[in-house]
């Protein structure tokens, strides 16, 4: 029986930790969707852009160096020295907050009161623009990201249980817990958080009591940018910072379908289910059907949920009266 197989439990633990990595990306989607009803297609590119910016600051890269060299005829690519990691993280956070402000001012404000699909299309455009900007700013090379997070197998766990567990993924789990706690405290116990929930519940009612929709959107997109930076750090530390990072959004979609688009705990639980499910399926069923099931299994599971529980496990059931 596979339940007594220690390898099965190793897969389950690895799946849970991989699921946390997916949840980190899904969280950004949930925050924006909950507060503004916008499905932000650009969230994966946000993670990429945040990680590129962080590495750029860390390594002292001159932004738009190739463009500047081409215009001025010079060849200056670095400032000479980079920033310490913590300072670089703070600057990257500021960039993401600035980016959120720009998105709200340039993309969202002109589209207020438009259909959701139009806002969604605008985020698709945003994804292309941001990806191109990231390329121009920091180049398309693979960049190693080291923020001092432990990596590799945990010897303590191997010695105690014989199981392989990646220290980076343990860090990701700890960070995800801290992030969820911080987001919960922010939304429950701060004035801004209450305003945010008010906007999420009813835009019109929130506007009528004097809550500025634009400010709330800016705050939400800033928080999503910060979450994107965290996701970018975790995924970038794993595979290097490169443009395929933007595709991690594809991993978050089935997580959202499972967990629900409006639930932060749903994003976490959805990620865990997808993480464990895809690993167990790949290792026990995959060999019988040719393997490479990790990508489509998540979507197959999401499809089943769409059939029987379209709002996801924790999502709000949408009832529209005509």
């Amino acid at each position: 029986m596979f339940l007594t197989d220690p390898f099965f439990w190793e897969i389950v633990v690895s799946g849970l930790l991989a699921g946390v990595m997916y949840s980190l990306v899904a969280l950004g989607f949930v925050l924006i969707f909950k507060a503004s009803g916008i499905f932000n297609f650009a969230q994966g590119v946000f993670a990429l852009f945040a990680a590129l910016t962080l590495v750029g600051f860390q390594t002292g890269q001159v932004p738009f160096a190739h463009l500047l060299s081409w215009i001025t005829g010079t060849s200056i690519h670095t400032w000479g020295s980079g920033m310490p990691t913590l300072v670089a993280i703070v600057f990257a956070l500021l960039v993401m907050i600035g980016l959120a402000w720009l998105v709200v001012r340039i993309v969202l404000r002109p589209l207020v009161n438009q259909e959701g699909i139009i806002l969604f299309m605008a985020t698709i455009g945003l994804a292309f623009v941001l990806e191109g900007t990231g390329d121009l700013m920091w180049g398309a090379n693979v960049k190693a990201l080291d923020v001092g997070l432990p990596q590799g197998p945990s010897d303590t766990i191997i010695d105690a249980t014989g199981m392989f567990v990646d220290k980076l993924e343990i860090s990701a789990a700890v960070v995800a817990v801290l992030l969820v706690v911080a987001l919960t405290l922010f939304s429950q116990f701060t004035r801004m958080g209450r305003a945010l929930r008010a906007v999420a519940d009813d835009h019109q009612a929130a506007l009528s009591v004097g809550i500025s929709l634009e400010t709330i959107w800016w705050i939400v997109w800033s928080i999503a940018g910060i979450v994107a930076l965290v996701a970018g750090i975790m995924w970038g530390a794993k595979s290097g910072v490169q443009f395929s990072l933007s595709l991690i959004a594809l991993k978050a979609l089935p997580v959202l379908m499972l967990g629900g688009f409006t639930s932060i705990p749903g994003a976490i639980v959805g990620g865990l289910i997808i993480g464990v499910g895809e690993k167990v399926f790949e290792l026990y069923v995959g060999p019988m059907i040719g393997g490479a099931t990790e990508n489509w299994f998540a979507y197959m599971l999401a499809l089943l949920f769409l059939l029987f529980r379209p709002q996801g496990l924790f999502g709000e059931k949408i009832i529209e009266r005509v």
Binding site: E10, S14, F164, L247, K251, K279, E282, L283, G286, A292
Partner: peptide, 30 residues
């Protein structure tokens, strides 16, 4: 490993379990 190959945990857990003497890779990109 499916495109783009950003997540390969299951593949490498299988390698850890089966302990092949050599691993040959036909990969590209990430």
């Amino acid at each position: 490993v499916d495109h783009p190959g950003q997540e390969q945990k299951a593949t490498w857990l299988q390698i850890r379990r089966d302990r092949p003497d050599y691993v040959v890779m036909w990969g590209w990109g990430v």
